[in-house]
Nucleic acid binder design. Sequence first.
DNA 1: CTCAGTGTTCAGTG
DNA 2: TCACTGAACACTGA
Length: 277
Amino acid sequence: MPELPEVERYRSVAIQAGVGHRISEVVVKDDPIVLDGCDAADVRRSLIGRLLRAVERKGKYLWWVLDRPPCVVFHFGMTGRMLSTVHAPLALKTAASTERGGWPPDRATLRVQFKTGAEVAFVTTRRMGRVRLVEAPLVEAPVNRLGADVLSELPELGSFQALFMSRRGNIKGGLLDQTRLAGLGNWMADEVLFMAKISPLRSSASLSDAEWEALRDAIVSVVEIAVAVEADSERFPSGWLFHQRWDAARTPQTLRGGLSFTTVGGRPTVFDPRRQR
DNA sequence: CTCAGTGTTCAGTG
DNA sequence: TCACTGAACACTGA
């Protein structure tokens, strides 16, 4: 479930383990699916002996800025993680999550050791995550295709609303389109619509001004809270829809506790038809 | 054995 | 050309 808050957490993991430190050892698994446009030798050569200057994020993408280009850009796909020896792993309550203790983690694509002895690993068990070498991530693919980051660049109400004007489809599809707003994923889209009392099936064109404002406010709130608790779902507010979506996810097209479990735009969707109009 | 689930990309359609 | 839809991708755990 790596949506923005989780990626932001992985950013802290990398910062705390390695920013300001030089890289002494690198182990890369030569996996042509995960390494996109580069091979293990390229990645190793780019990292070994380098100083980690900063770790940046936009939407669900993360990249390491070294003291010499290129940057190493990570995407987590549906099952990626970034772990370190100085961070306790977080047990994430999602359908796909499995955290196991021990170091090194199983099947890491990449393991980096700093001169301090701290290590960071990138794991993408189902191989849908990606590692790329990019000179200037903000102006090159894939990061340059992203819209405004929902944590740091959320547009003011007028431009926020305008982002969706060219869309004919449902509002949930619009929220998931990373070229408009970057960072929301499937569960967060459901959560903000729940908070804003808007049905995921509504067409973008049908929202009132008050609803646009409620939707924008809900995005601010959900993103801020999820980031503040470091994407630890145990600490999500008890009223959030999140807590009800995973255990009951095996009952499509039925009602449970008044909630509707269905599919919108090909994604599993949970909403409360009594509350969300 | 079957299949849900996670994010993105791509082929096909309107 | 643009926007949308649905399948595909790889894999694990239920």
